[in-house]
Design a protein around this nucleic acid. Structure first.
Lengths: 365, 365
DNA sequence: GTGAAAGCGCTAACAC
DNA sequence: GTGTTAGCGCTTTCAC
């Protein structure tokens, strides 16, 4: 029976083959690769040449057996299909590649159990782990970080190094923006209940709103996708405000769609703000005003911190490492229609707040 | 100096520790895990319990040293930030996870050299490789497939197993759709010149057009993103047709934007069709008519084929494995405005084809 | 500087 | 069924 899975396995060239061909001891070959300098320049050179001519490839696996690092990093993302995580993966991949590390990707599919399973499987082979949008409990993560270096993204856990965007300032900027446009009451459309980021965003918004003398309330949780947003729009319409900030862009886009579908104008009647600044935010009509998180940088920064730890730096576990956010203003936000003051643009405010009645009668059908 | 990178490395529990605690030989412990059934039920049970109580974790690395499989698969994508690949990764990850395999992700960043480097690094540690959107040459890939099982996605290479969507039928359906709407001339907006898929799509379209007695021409190449599409719109406008099919959705969305920006109506004046059916295709206004590729299934199917090969099936290298596509009709396509017949919807055809003049004068500014 | 020997944790032959 | 022995490819003592 022909074992044909990938040709006839031409047994890979080992360190011994090279040693024999070069007329030196295997240990010398090993040194020539791992600790050049501890071997005479000429010898090293010769070994190298013979090695390439023989097609020798050092085996990362065997190298790692004696407890040495594997130069692999596990990156666990909550949902690889989510563009936010795709961008983070990209950043991480770049940073890891630059330093000669390889990324082992695990997709938790928004599921705590799958996440654990994936980590279980990959943990032994990696030098460290980056958790992006983990759904695991703080204690589980803290436990894990006792065994291998761990960096957590978009979340803050005491005693575990974290990288996250500046939620506080981001939401603050969004609230200010809405305040400047004359909005006085803001509804926060919540994402997954299990999401640490969701809690954080809401608390940040509430704090900012208080400082700015705005009212803020929360509805949800909703699934963090477009359909979830459409759903949210229905709930929202029962008790509307003139401004909405959503957990993320997908949700915000869904809210806009839902509202437009009910005949509510955006931003005429309701202004909507998202979070993340995904590609689609720019493409929808109206363009979505949103808080942009530095996704790519986050991924890269997480890897950088992790590698520092892996390579022996003291675990920098003080304050979370916070990355700047910025508000991207597009068409989904505009002047409030209530206030007498405000720079309302004529026609936009024409219907005042009467759409609430319209919605009510519609949803009562 | 305190080595603090990840706590005080509590030396992992080995198979020997378990053996000692259980009062059996190490090989028995090994068997209890790898080949249960060859060990007495009671013993196996006891060993398992002791193992978990001791917190024993089998080390995939050491296991792989003697030439055994690593249960890792490398997935090389052209661009992880591209939603198309994100969906493929998702499908692959699921299929791999189900079978107990772990995915090693490498992002080629649309660059042939980086791709090679990434493969170089990960090849020794994996049981096989899936290439998604590879920019490498056919011969390089064929070479590689001599060393390790390889499956190629979205591309057909003689003697290498391939998985790809049914480009021919997909483009054929798109052409039919446009034909039915009365369009007679179609412009294909090309993507990256190095992309095999681009060539394939264009050839498929040309063939379909010929059969359907439609005229088809190609412009490009353009970068396969929204900006590239805007660019393409400018080129296109110099010599417009009433219908456009773009290499992918991002490009198509860009074309629509570009046209709208010039005052050209979509689909009133020009109908636009994309390829892939990414999330944003549904969100833009007008919604993008597009050929949906079964991205998720592609990823999963590639892994399935690869694992079959890895586990010893004869390399199935006859015809590429083709997955069905389907046409998703949305708002970006509508009746042609030229033909006298056709079910043109009044107002939409009012301006006839006069916009060409409009565009000319604008772009002449 | 370089060689010889002793493992890393695990599995695969052999024995018993 | 289970214990014993011999490695996998590489690194790392310890000699010389």
């Amino acid at each position: 029976m022909v074992q044909d899975g990938g040709a006839d396995a031409p047994r890979p060239v080992t360190i011994y083959d090279v040693a024999r061909a070069a007329g030196v001891a295997p240990s010398t070959v090993s040194r020539a690769f791992s600790r050049p300098g501890r071997v005479k320049a000429g010898t090293a050179e010769r070994i190298r040449e013979i090695a390439v001519s023989l097609g020798y490839r050092t085996s990362p696996l065997a190298r790692a057996v004696p407890g040495a690092p594997t130069r692999m990093i596990a990156l666990v993302v909550a949902d690889i299909a989510n563009p936010v995580f795709a961008a983070i993966v990209r950043g991480a991949q770049e940073a890891a590649g630059e330093r000669g590390y390889v990324l082992l990707l695990a997709d938790a599919q928004e599921d705590d159990r799958q996440e654990r399973a994936a980590i279980e499987r990959s943990l032994p082979s990696v030098d460290g782990v980056v958790l992006a949008g983990s759904r695991m409990s703080d204690s589980a993560i803290r436990m894990m970080s006792k065994q291998k270096p761990v960096v957590v993204l978009n979340r803050s856990i005491p005693d575990v190094p974290c990288v996250m965007p500046d939620y506080a300032r981001g939401l603050r900027r969004a609230a200010e923006h809405l305040g400047e446009l004359g909005h006085e009451r803001i509804t926060y459309v919540a994402g997954p209940a299990a999401s640490w980021a969701d809690g954080m965003r809401w608390r940040s918004l509430r704090a900012a709103a208080a400082e700015l003398h705005l009212a803020a309330r929360r509805i949800g949780p909703f699934p963090p996708d477009v359909d979830g947003g459409v759903l949210a729009a229905a709930t929202f319409a029962a008790q509307p405000t003139s401004a909405v900030i959503a957990y993320n862009d997908q949700l915000a886009i869904g809210v806009v769609r839902g509202l437009l579908g009910m005949g509510v104008r955006v931003p005429g009647d309701v202004s909507v703000v998202g979070f993340d600044n995904i590609l689609a935010a720019e493409l929808v009509t109206p363009g979505l005003t949103t808080v942009a998180a530095p996704l790519h940088t986050e991924g890269a920064e997480a890897i950088r911190h992790l590698l520092a730890m892996v390579e022996g730096a003291p675990t920098h576990t003080g304050q979370p490492f916070v990355l700047p956010t910025r508000l991207v203003v597009r068409g989904s936000t505009g002047p409030s229609s209530h206030p007498p003051g405000g720079p309302g643009r004529g026609s936009r405010t024409a219907r005042g707040n009467s759409w609430q009645l319209l919605v009510r009668s519609r949803s009562a059908e």
